[in-house]
């Protein structure tokens, strides 16, 4: 017992200050991309062809990146001869609408349209049932880590629960293999309404790197009514936490 107390003292207090203070992100972290098509040379489409998930499109000299597909590999940045695409360290990537994930140089301010009903119902307590549907265990790990003392998700009233019957919503990772479709739908149906649906990671939003494989469903976008999209491959835990807190109105601005 004394040993337990002694080690408790030694290990100290480790919970981060987020959202009150800025999070500590790795120096080479890739967050929100910044696009500057004015720099693009004529007829250049190098980044379009190199992107492994076809996240980049070009229309009338404008570049668009679909964050719902992007796996943040940085290849488009590295290949661009003119630095027309760069990545900031901005971790705030979550949106409530699929279309808002498609960004261009015109995207002045990122839109996060909070849903007042969700804030009213779940603002103080949100219990989530996580379903891994073809997730590679990285998105899962970055959800799991939120429950550790480092992030202490519980202090915001958010908790992952074991049964869909105890849940207010479902959080899905992975592209939804054909073999997981039924289980996912059953879990969703077992949660009583009203309920929220959260897609975490490129896979769950669009199929990610698996998009187009006949073995998967290209994510949950067409299967369930999604309330929150959190892009990344995997999203940094801070990006996930930030998204969850915005959804329930604990981060405003």
């Amino acid at each position: 017992m004394l040993q337990v107390l002694h080690s408790r003292l030694k290990q100290g207090y480790k919970t981060i200050d987020f959202p009150d203070a800025e999070p500590a992100l790795p120096e080479k972290f890739l967050g929100m991309p910044e696009i500057n098509p004015a720099k693009c040379p004529d007829k250049c489409a190098t980044c379009l062809s190199i992107c492994p998930v076809d996240a980049i499109t070009q229309k009338h000299k404008h570049l668009f990146i679909d964050l719902g597909r992007c796996i943040f590999c940085g290849k488009c940045r590295d290949i661009c001869p003119k630095q027309a695409i760069t990545f900031t360290k901005d971790w705030k990537l979550a949106t409530t609408k699929r279309d808002d994930l498609i960004i261009s140089s015109h995207t002045k301010e990122k839109k996060f349209n909070p849903n007042p009903d969700i804030i009213k119902l779940f603002g103080k307590s949100l219990k989530l049932r996580e379903v891994s549907a073809g997730g590679c265990n990285a998105c899962e790990a970055d959800c799991n880590v939120l429950e550790t003392i480092g992030f202490d998700l519980g202090r915001f009233g958010i908790q992952f629960v074991a049964s869909p019957r105890h849940a207010d919503g479902i959080l899905v990772t992975g592209p939804v293999p054909q073999n997981m479709k039924v289980a996912l739908e059953k879990t969703y149906n077992a949660i009583s309404s009203p309920k929220v649906v959260i897609a975490v990671g490129a896979c769950a939003i669009s199929g990610g790197i698996y998009r187009g494989n006949e073995e998967v469903n290209n994510g949950i976008h067409e299967l369930l009514p999604v309330d929150l999209y959190i892009p990344g491959c995997p999203p940094h835990p801070i990006t996930i936490l930030d998204g969850l807190l915005r959804l329930i109105g604990k981060i405003k601005e």
Binding site: G134, P175, P177, N179, M180, Y210, N213, E214, E215, V216
Partner: peptide, 11 residues
């Protein structure tokens, strides 16, 4: 198992 089958080898 098999629920996580995403067709990697085929792809």
């Amino acid at each position: 198992l098999g629920y996580q089958h995403r067709g990697i080898e085929k792809a």
